[in-house]
Nucleic acid binder design. Structure first.
Length: 557
RNA sequence: GUCCCAGUAGCUCAGCAGGAUAGAGCAUACGCCUUCUAAGCGUACGGUCGGGGGUUCGAAUCCCUCCUGGGACGCCA
């Protein structure tokens, strides 16, 4: 258990003992004690509302109860310096700050794993995200999914889950035929022929590029193939090109998937008949109007869904059900899908399908990332699918760099529509929070460099007198550092990686303020060592959180 | 019409398994570089938490209802 939780446990124990010693209630009636860090520092290091919770059981008013608890509190052994009643009946604890010092050693020992907390207990979780169709370049929405998904995976990993990242490649449906037709049309155009783009074609610049390459490499030789052969050629060629591009973009973005799962493999491995049979056996399938339906309405969906169209082909849903069953069969305890807001209506039918297959619906968690709007020069940038005019993820990385994108896209709650301000992201000014946090890290590194230049040797922690850290700002920093494991736990449980951006920003802010008011390198050698030790823990903490959200931690700026 | 998300300071957003005087950044105004990076620090200004009901010791947070904005409602993927 981490240092802060140990202390909290001790304080809770002391409270429980005080309550029973005062004879307020029996130990058996004792509610779960919540000990929180008050928002307002004036309210002490910890606060509890236990006196208010006991009001009903003890039939006394909360302030009376609080008084009795305080009177019976064994303070010393729980590091409590003072306990006071406040407001409607809160008990505020001021702690003897020595409880904070062991944090520095804890961070040093855990290093890049500091912040880890085992709430996941090795539960096998698979996170499927991005999964953009291989029919065009990744755009802003995909970038958001990638940033949030990867950060979430890192958070879950730190929280003790066994995490696997997966990308589902939709390489089997109609859209791939459209891709082939689109490339064909662009190829013909590149050869100077008149060719119309298909109705549902893909108009992206990437496809023009691929077609132009082909025209340059192969000349008009592909024209001699039959239409079928040619389509097949364009299909394979297009998929390979698009997938390459996607992998390249995501790699550059710092996202590595463990599995790339191909929809085509579902057909190759013949997974669908078994799934259909199972759904039939479970009594969820019926025939109507020449089609085969899944009866999802009794399972929470608002209408039933077609599995096999009356032309004999599958809908998108059918292989997707097979895919999700396959995921469970691979042994994952929980599946997390991150989808764009435009797919939200798809959730009930997939959950219904899982229920129909006998899986608990709760084991499938679908997170929705809301839309992204791009602003440039103060105006919303219009995107058009029809003309292929869209800012791609690649464009964005070229223009603003990976760090600001990852920071900005992770910064907001997934539920929130996100306005991405290009001008702010590229600005190297105090308006830009990415640099603010990175700068804190760089500043600490700079202090270490400075110390080295002055010939100051960093002593091993055992030889450092941490009790020299007595400034309020130093206690604040330590407390904040100590909160990381709890932050990680909450971020993991709520699937809310944006909380860590908040956290790291606040930590950086506390440091900048401290930096202004306190010199680390002073004539007092022991104090210098103590402060360097504190900064060491701080630097590790900043770097760890930045790594979780996929932002670099530069040593100088 | 049904479903989902959002509505909190001038702007962008946190806070929402109920807790103390609702926070942050930006913007605005005014200060701070003679020792470790001013990509920094500090002070001030700024609010009917969309409206209205309810639940209770206590509601931005939970419930109901209405309004506004966005998205989804295919035998497309």
């Amino acid at each position: 258990m981490d240092v802060l939780n140990q202390v909290k446990t001790i304080v809770k124990q002391a409270i429980t003992e005080a309550v029973t010693a005062a004879g307020i209630i029996d130990a058996a009636q004792m509610p779960e004690i919540t000990l929180e860090v008050p928002k307002d520092k004036a309210h002490g290091d910890f606060a509890t509302n236990v006196a208010m919770q006991l009001t009903r059981i003890a039939k006394q008013n909360p302030r009376q109860i609080a008084e009795q608890i305080i009177a019976n509190l064994q303070k010393e052994k729980a590091y409590i310096a003072s306990a006071d009643i406040a407001g409607p009946g809160f008990i505020n604890f001021k702690m003897n700050k020595v409880y904070l010092y062991p944090l520095i050693a804890e961070v040093a020992e855990q290093g890049s794993r500091y912040g880890a907390i085992n709430v996941g207990q090795g539960l096998k979780v698979q996170v499927e995200f991005v999964s953009a169709n291989p029919t065009g370049s990744l755009h802003l929405g995909h970038a958001r999914g990638a940033a949030v998904g990867d950060a979430l995976c890192n958070v879950l990993d730190l929280a003790g889950y066994d995490v696997s990242r997966e990308y589902y490649i939709n390489d089997a449906g109609n859209q791939v035929l459209n891709l082939a037709k689109s490339i064909e049309a662009r190829y013909l155009q590149a050869l100077g022929q008149d060719a119309e783009m298909p109705e549902d074609g893909y108009f992206g610049e990437d496809i023009k590029g691929f077609a132009a390459e082909l025209a340059a490499d192969k000349g008009d030789s592909l024209l001699s193939l039959s239409e079928e052969e040619r389509r097949s050629y364009f299909r394979t060629y297009g998929l390979e090109k698009e997938l390459d591009k996607i992998k390249r973009d995501l790699g550059r973005f710092g996202v590595q998937f463990d599995h790339w799962f191909s929809e085509t493999s579902i057909y190759e491995d013949n997974l669908i008949p078994g799934v259909l049979q199972e759904l039939r056996d479970n009594g969820h399938v019926y025939e109507e109007d020449g089609a085969t339906w899944l009866n999802t309405t009794p399972l929470g969906d608002d209408k039933n869904r077609v599995l096999i169209k009356n032309d004999g082909s599958f809908t998108y849903l059918t292989p997707d059900i097979a895919y999700h069953r396959n995921k469970f069969e691979r042994g994952y305890d929980r599946l997390i899908n991150i989808w764009g807001a435009d797919h939200h209506g798809y959730i009930p039918r997939m959950k219904a399908a899982m229920t129909a297959l006998g899986f608990e619906a709760d084991r499938l968690v679908v997170l929705i990332a809301q839309m992204v709007s791009l602003f440039q020069n103060g105006e919303k940038v219009k995107m058009s699918k029809r003309t292929g005019k869209a800012v791609t993820m690649e464009d964005l990385m070229d223009e603003v760099g990976v760090d600001p994108i990852r920071y900005f896209f992770t910064m907001r709650s997934m539920d929130s529509h996100l306005d991405f301000d290009m001008d702010l992201a590229v600005s190297q000014s105090n308006e830009n929070p990415v640099f603010y946090v990175q700068y804190a890290h760089a500043r600490i590194c700079s202090i270490y460099r400075q110390a080295a230049e002055q010939g100051i040797e960093i002593l091993p922690l055992e030889q450092v007198d941490l009790s020299r850290l007595t400034a309020e700002a130093e206690f604040d920093l330590l407390r904040k550092i100590g909160e990381l494991p709890e932050e990680v736990a909450v971020a993991a449980e709520q699937y809310a990686p944006h909380r860590l951006i908040r956290y790291v920003y606040e930590l950086a802010s506390q440091f900048h303020s401290y930096y202004k008011g306190h010199y680390v390198i002073t004539d007092d050698a022991a104090l210098t060592q103590a402060r360097l030790a504190l900064l060491g823990a701080l630097r590790t903490t900043l770097a760890n959180v930045l790594r979780v959200v996929g932002v670099s931690a530069p040593e100088r700026m």
